[in-house]
Structures are given as C-alpha cells and as structure tokens.
C-alpha cells in the first residue's frame, strides 16, 4: 500500500505521555497517525481494523503503580484481548516504546504472543529513573522495525526507572530463554554498555515474526538532529530514531 494510506493508531489516556511525538514521527514520514484514547478505542473496536500499525507510546500509565505497564496491560487484556489477537494474526505491526514495551510484555505479546510469560521488565539496577542518551547496537534480527538500521551503531535517549530485562527461573532457565530469543532473531536492540542491568544488555526485543517490537529507548525523541544531546551533533537532518518508524512503514508498503 501507499505511504500516505498507512494508518498508525497511537494509544493515549490513563497516563500515557508520548503520544504526540510518536504521532509526529509517523506523520513526518508521510503516513497517517491517529491519537486515540484507550476508552474510545474500547468503544470503537473497529478502529483497529482500519489501521496497519498500533503504537503504545511511552509514559506512566496508571502512574506506574503496582508495576510499570501492569494495569494498562490488564485493561487491554480484558477490554481488547480478542481484537488485539486478530490484529496480530493479520500480520499487522505493533510497536511499544518504554511504558508501551512494558505493557506489551505484561500483556504477554512479547517475547512470544499467546504463550506463558518468561520475561519481564523490572527496576533498573540503580534503583531509580534515568534519563540519558545511550549507545546501541542494532543486531541482525527478524525485527522489521529495525530493517533500515541493521548493523548500525545508534544513539537514543532512555527515560525509565524499570527497564531491566529479567527472565523467569533459575540461571540455567534464564540462559535457555535468552538462547531461544537469540537464535530466533528476537534480540532487536542492545545497549553497548551495561546501562540498567538488563540481561545481556538487551534494549529491545521482537516476537518471532518480527512484527511486534518493544524497546526501552525512545526513537520518537530522536527524529531530528536537533534532538541530539551535544551541541556539536545538532543540525537540520533526520535523526536516527526516525529510521525505526521508516522501517515499519517500508514493511507496510511492501506487505500490506
């Protein structure tokens, strides 16, 4: 389909914060973006049928109480569980950024949809919120959202208190889970140093199909070089974060 026909639904409400900049990333690239309140989506479930992309932006849904993304995941599960399942089965794209990633994990869509949970995102090793730019590797993976950046070294901001990836079980079980993800090509983004204690420095994972992508760093906050943290790196050009969205749109153009 054509770029201008592609429609991204951006969730908002209940403490989601990054809907505007996430929408801006899609519209900068010529796609359509509709910011929709969760309650409105629950009322108009058909909206999901019209969209090719569902984005869960960053924020503090429900104030991060009980666990980050926990209550948002429960709300989506009970109100939109079936519709989300259909959305995923139709091979459409889902991206969850930061709090959106946490919700996708707790919803059970990542790392593997509709299977027993093996992974979670918990408090950073440092025990507090961190806002800084981090260097990342974009490994070869199944992830369609990183296709434009594969093999590159990029830099994006992180802004989270609970971004440490942890697997279930004892050390052996954890290593086994990691191995499976790794050999499936599900490790889509890794920190180049230990920034929060995340298992094997994982910063983002996709499901085995590569269509559902969750990441802790914020690509929507790096869509222009003006966003760069140091004065010397600023300028007019596109920021590297924009290529995550570009990758997603390229997939839609070719496959949907």
């Amino acid at each position: 389909m054509k770029r201008e026909q592609i429609k991204a639904l951006i969730l908002t409400g209940d403490g989601i914060n990054c809907e505007a900049e996430t929408a801006l990333a899609f519209t900068e690239l010529g796609a359509q973006a509709e910011i929709i309140h969760i309650s409105d989506l629950i009322e108009n479930k058909n909206k999901l049928k019209e969209a090719q992309i569902l984005a869960l932006p960053g924020g503090f849904s429900f104030g991060d109480e009980i666990g980050s993304g926990q209550i948002l995941a429960l709300k989506l599960k009970y109100a939109l569980g079936e519709e989300l399942k259909t959305f995923v089965e139709e091979k459409k794209l889902v991206i969850g950024i930061c709090n959106g990633f946490q919700a996708l994990v707790r919803l059970g869509l990542l790392p593997k949809p509709f299977s027993k949970r093996t992974m979670t995102l918990t408090h950073n090793r440092q025990g507090h919120f961190i806002n800084r730019w981090v260097d990342l590797d974009v490994p070869v993976s199944e992830c369609v959202w990183t296709s434009e950046l594969r093999g590159e070294k990029i830099s994006l901001p992180i802004r989270h208190g609970e971004g440490r990836i942890v697997f279930k079980g004892n050390e052996e079980e954890q290593r086994a889970t990691y191995k499976t993800l790794s050999s499936n090509g599900q490790i889509a983004l890794s920190y180049r140093s230990d920034v929060n204690g995340s298992f094997a420095e994982i910063a983002g994972v996709c499901d085995p199909s590569g269509l559902i992508f969750g990441l802790m760093p914020h690509p929507e906050a790096a869509i222009s070089l003006w966003h760069n943290p140091g004065g010397a790196d600023k300028g007019e050009d596109k920021g590297l974060g924009l290529f995550i969205f570009e990758s997603g749109l390229k997939y839609c153009e070719a496959n949907l």
């Binding site: 990054c18 806002n131 140091g230």
Partner: peptide
C-alpha cells in the same frame, strides 16, 4: 537531574547537561 525526565515531548533541544559524545554529556 538525570532522574528527572528532561526530554519527554521530544522538544528539549538544549538539555540540562551537554558535552561531546565521547565524554558523555
């Protein structure tokens, strides 16, 4: 200061701390 989100809304062009890449801002 790094525990305060200073760039949500993706509009903060000059952030509280700056510097060059290799020195970590």
């Amino acid at each position: 200061v790094r525990r305060y989100d200073h760039e949500v809304k993706a509009a903060t062009i000059v952030k509280p701390y700056t510097g060059s890449t290799e020195k970590g801002y």
